[in-house]
Simulated assay, not measured.
Amino acid sequence: MTLKTALATAALLLACGPVLAQTATQQDATGAMTTQQVKTATVQFITLEPAAAVTSRILGTKVTNAQNESVGDIADLVIVDGKTVQAVILGVGGFLGIGERYVAVSPDSVTLVRDGDGWKASVNATKDDLNKAPAFDYKKKS
């Protein structure tokens, strides 16, 4: 199973069902009553394959290249429209987290396979390729 397939499955979970709008009334900071739209979704339960990748288990996965060199780790995912995985953020460079920077790659660029109880990720890029890639700059929540 590729990372794209696993992530697409996870993304579909985020969009499983029509969104319904409801009106809720609440008090604002001044004490006045305000009305706002609250969105709720119809819950649909699904059965996943045992081999499905869940985000909590793939974040931090070491990434290797074709030469079996460690080139980084999976640091994050970028989800757009609340349902589509647009990019995999790789932490590259540095040593023990010092000097590490982030690059965004297409989910199609990452191969993710089961490795015993965990996962193994690989990309077809050298350390130099990843170090020269444009940086993905964001503030991660601690």
Rank of each mutant, 00 (worst) to 15 (best):
M1R: 10
M1N: 10
T5G: 04
A6S: 15
A6D: 13
L7G: 04
A8E: 07
A8N: 03
A8F: 02
T9F: 05
L13W: 02
L14T: 12
L14P: 00
C16T: 11
G17T: 04
V19Q: 13
L20M: 12
L20F: 12
Q22E: 15
Q22S: 10
T25H: 14
Q26R: 14
Q27F: 10
A29C: 07
G31N: 08
A32P: 03
A32I: 01
A32M: 05
T34I: 15
T35C: 06
T35E: 15
V38Q: 07
V38K: 09
K39L: 13
A41I: 11
A41E: 12
A41W: 08
T42P: 05
T42E: 10
V43D: 04
Q44M: 15
Q44L: 15
I46K: 14
L48G: 09
E49S: 13
P50S: 15
A51D: 15
A52S: 14
A53F: 03
T55C: 05
S56V: 14
I58Y: 03
G60T: 06
T61L: 04
V63E: 02
T64E: 12
T64F: 10
T64G: 08
N65E: 08
A66N: 12
Q67P: 03
E69M: 06
S70F: 10
V71C: 00
V71F: 00
G72T: 04
G72L: 08
D73S: 07
I74S: 00
D76Y: 02
V80A: 06
T84Y: 14
V85C: 06
V85G: 00
V85T: 13
Q86L: 04
Q86M: 01
V88S: 01
V92F: 06
V92R: 00
G93F: 01
G93A: 12
G93D: 08
G93L: 08
G93H: 03
G94L: 02
G97H: 04
G97Q: 00
I98W: 13
I98A: 15
I98E: 12
E100V: 14
R101Y: 04
Y102A: 11
A104C: 01
A104E: 13
V105W: 06
V105K: 04
V105C: 01
P107V: 04
P107M: 09
V110S: 05
T111C: 09
V113F: 10
D115C: 09
D115F: 13
G116P: 05
D117C: 11
D117G: 09
G118H: 11
W119E: 06
W119K: 03
A121N: 02
A121I: 02
S122F: 07
V123S: 01
N124P: 05
N124K: 09
A125R: 01
D128C: 00
L130W: 00
N131V: 01
A133I: 04
A133G: 07
F136K: 03
F136S: 05
Y138Q: 03
K139M: 10
K140Y: 08
S142W: 13
S142E: 14
S142D: 14
